[in-house]
């Protein structure tokens, strides 16, 4: 396909298929989705969320969504082994700041509807700045979108 993005690769879109034709009609959407992945995973200004931590969180979120190939892809972007462990759901951190981010991330992936003001206050209480809270929320929220887009495309491709 003349357009290759993380999403189209993950959904294994067949060249010449109807789904591919519809994707190409919406090229800008898929290019912008890729640009958004770059912005949340590898921003020029990462703030208090290092590139390693972002990739570990993305891998963890993908695993929580049952998207294990995506989890592996994101985990490959983690170089520090301390962070690599965090890619696996259930693994906690000894660093209170990171630990709070893991608790938040697990909740955003698995039960966003029941989240309350206290979930944000817990991050603030762990010393995380408001700017970093927004960065963390965007990372989580983008992944929720991307993983759903992959799942939907795969279903379309399977049934075509």
């Amino acid at each position: 396909m003349s357009l290759t993005t993380s999403v189209t690769a993950a959904a294994a879109i067949a060249p010449g298929s109807t789904v591919e034709a519809e994707i190409l009609k919406r090229r800008d959407i898929f290019e912008k989705t890729q640009a958004a992945e770059d912005a949340v995973l590898s921003p020029a200004d990462p703030g208090g969320l290092t590139r390693d931590l972002r990739h570990a969180l993305a891998a963890r979120i993908a695993a929580l969504h049952g998207e294990h190939a995506e989890a592996t892809r994101y985990a490959a972007g983690v170089s520090d082994e301390v962070f690599a462990a965090l890619a696996r759901p259930g693994v906690a951190s000894g660093d209170p700041r990171v630990a709070a981010m893991l608790v938040f991330t697990d909740a955003v992936s698995t039960n966003p509807r029941d989240m309350v003001a206290g979930d944000v206050a817990a991050l603030q209480g762990a010393g995380i700045s408001d700017a970093d809270i927004v960065r963390l929320a965007e990372l989580n929220a983008f992944l929720a979108y991307q993983l759903r887009l992959i799942a939907g495309l795969r279903l379309m491709a399977e049934g075509a």
């Binding site: 966003p112 509807r113 944000v120 929320a137 965007e138 929220a141 983008f142 929720a144 979108y145």
Partner: peptide, 11 residues
């Protein structure tokens, strides 16, 4: 809206 909800509802 999986994305938008996670910002609007959580933040």
């Amino acid at each position: 809206f999986g994305w938008a909800n996670r910002l609007m509802h959580i933040l």
